[in-house]
Design a protein around this nucleic acid. Sequence first.
DNA 1: GAGTGGTCTAGACCACGTA
DNA 2: ACGTGGTCTAGACCACTCA
Lengths: 268, 268
Amino acid sequence: MTTTPLHDRIRAHVERQILSGRWPPGYRIPYEHELMQKYGCSRMTVNRAMTALATAGLILRRRRAGSFVAKPRIHAAVLTIPDIQTAIEARGERYDYQLLDTARVASRLHSSIGTELRGARRLLILRCRHFADGSVFAFEHRAINLTAVPAAAHVDFAATPPGTWLLQHVPWTEAEHRVSAGNTDAATAQLLGIEIGGACLSLERHTWRGAAGITHVRQLFPAERYDLVARFGPSVTRSIGARRKKIARAHVEHGNVIAQRDAGQMSQ
Amino acid sequence: MTTTPLHDRIRAHVERQILSGRWPPGYRIPYEHELMQKYGCSRMTVNRAMTALATAGLILRRRRAGSFVAKPRIHAAVLTIPDIQTAIEARGERYDYQLLDTARVASRLHSSIGTELRGARRLLILRCRHFADGSVFAFEHRAINLTAVPAAAHVDFAATPPGTWLLQHVPWTEAEHRVSAGNTDAATAQLLGIEIGGACLSLERHTWRGAAGITHVRQLFPAERYDLVARFGPSVTRSIGARRKKIARAHVEHGNVIAQRDAGQMSQ
DNA sequence: GAGTGGTCTAGACCACGTA
DNA sequence: ACGTGGTCTAGACCACTCA
């Protein structure tokens, strides 16, 4: 057996503190010389671990001040649109939001969601709609893992869209999208304000922080109103978590897979 | 002004050789001690640059043998589906391919494509269909930049799907997707073998190698047959090219943006 | 066996931002 | 001014792998 390099163990340790939430956004990570003493190694070794975390976007480093757990900020380094509200307003259209209903359930009742939102014992279910200039932009069905995000239980989601709140308060490390198209049935057509049989785009998204599922959301867009753009570069084999291989295998069983990289902030 | 770090300049120099095609896949990069002499620095500095390129997936490092430009291999480090043929066969269905027609044009004739495929003076236009178990899986309209990929002029695309060939022969660094849904008109419905008005998913993709556009493709899928999956982690501000900011701005003007990262190989 | 990359050291100087 | 991180050095030993 070969022992994992020390710089990798240091990086993994700090990473665990962040992904578990023990070191929340804004937390000041121990100085390099403190980590030197803790691990009994030279500063170059500590520095390599911290540099890797900084390039991965998990921490921010500031001279003289120290290193800090990165906040899931909207104005991220890369220019992207973080959520539906921002997207609509960036077009110069008026954004409105409507909460339809909410429910709290034990996750076992939603077995299909529960299997994806691992570790969820309590779920918050939301249904809502987004409007652009008065017409329906998207219908949204969402589940939030209250076990992983207990603070969500006390948020007034009639006033704040859940995606916007999550994006501003919960860092995420992995996401998976499913995109598909379909003709609407009567109920869906009414929710979207289009005619029965009209095409709609379905965007399904799972979000994780480390191994814990954060949220699952399914958004339906009237076909003519939505246009999803994705940019990325080729393969980078980074291993933030151990989940990757399992999920990738699931993809193969499912169908077409396009795995992607190189992002800024995005909607939750 | 602050001078860019030496390790960054070394990385950028090697990166340019690869992205320009001067160092093709499989090319052996100079040994670390050679780069030390060339740049007059210590091995740690060279090593840092090469390590960054290796984690970015641009090069492969092998002890005793040296470092090599990574090949755009299908069985990449991350397990993903590279193209439609592989995706269909992974489902256990039979794959068939049909070339409808081809044309060679001067790029100025296709102004809408020419503006995206920068540097293209000659374009190869293809239309083809993909079948799964005998029924239409996708209709594809593609443009290949013959200026950037001259070898494509001599390929028999009646026998090899263009996406498959490109994936195996041309490395890419950036891609942009547009996904949308719509109801089919009469001509499209016939091409896809579905009824008029049936929903279809449109996947539009631009691919670049460095600053040069490689290919543009628009694929239409019958709604019930397609399900695109994308996985990725959060922001990593890597700068492979200079194109990013410009494109990101274009996105904002256009509509919703989701930029993404963390990929394996994908279809071209 | 020999030569590559992987890792690590124990220093050093500098840039920068906070105080 | 001071202490942080950013960078770099000139070594070192080791693991691995090809010849």
